[in-house]
């Protein structure tokens, strides 16, 4: 462990907490920066007590690509779900459960995938079987199961595996 790593156990968490403190106080005066830095420092050492496994982000550029992809999908799926709600004569009739086998094992990758799937309307991560690697998903518009498998496997999983594994 380097010297910097010994002083700051989680530098990204430290920066995020400091930013949150300054945003909540709506000021960037020196006093607030010092107070926020002390609090963020103590909080990041509290986090160290939990000993979470380290996050390795391999390709920072791929994170931006993923963010853009998710944003585009949020717009697209909002439109699709709004259309079902407003114009379908029998809304929710085509919804159903499906399972998708995942190859990704990294827990941060899986957590990110669960947030992505829950944040795009129309899909919801329900359960994950770590032994078999099966993901149980609920989909609002389950007309074509292969479309959703394609979406999860090729649009998200490969990119997440590039980032985290």
């Amino acid at each position: 462990m380097s010297l910097l790593g010994r002083i700051f156990p989680y530098p990204r968490l430290f920066v995020a907490l400091l930013a949150m403190w300054l945003l909540l106080n709506r000021s960037a005066s020196p006093g607030q920066i010092i107070l926020g830095a002390i609090i963020a420092y103590v909080a990041s050492w509290t986090m160290a007590a939990f000993q979470p496994p380290p996050v390795r982000v391999r390709r920072p550029l791929a994170v931006l690509k993923l963010g853009w992809r998710v944003l585009a999908d949020i717009f697209r799926s909002n439109y699709a779900v709004a259309r079902i709600i407003l114009f379908s004569r029998n809304p929710g009739f085509t919804s159903g459960f499906m399972t998708i086998p995942l190859e990704m094992k990294d827990q941060y990758g899986l957590a990110t995938l669960s947030i992505i799937l829950a944040a795009t309307p129309g899909t919801l991560w329900i359960d994950y079987d770590p032994a078999k690697g099966d993901l149980l998903l609920h989909v609002l518009d389950l007309v074509d199961e292969s479309h959703w498998t394609e979406l999860v496997k090729h649009r998200y999983e490969t990119l997440l595996m590039e980032i985290f594994e």
């Binding site: 809304p91 929710g92 919804s95 459960f97 829950a118 795009t120 309307p121 899909t123």
Partner: peptide, 13 residues
């Protein structure tokens, strides 16, 4: 929406 599992998707909008 007609069933609980379908309704879960609506508040996400």
């Amino acid at each position: 929406l007609e069933s609980f599992y379908a309704r879960v998707h609506a508040p996400t909008l």
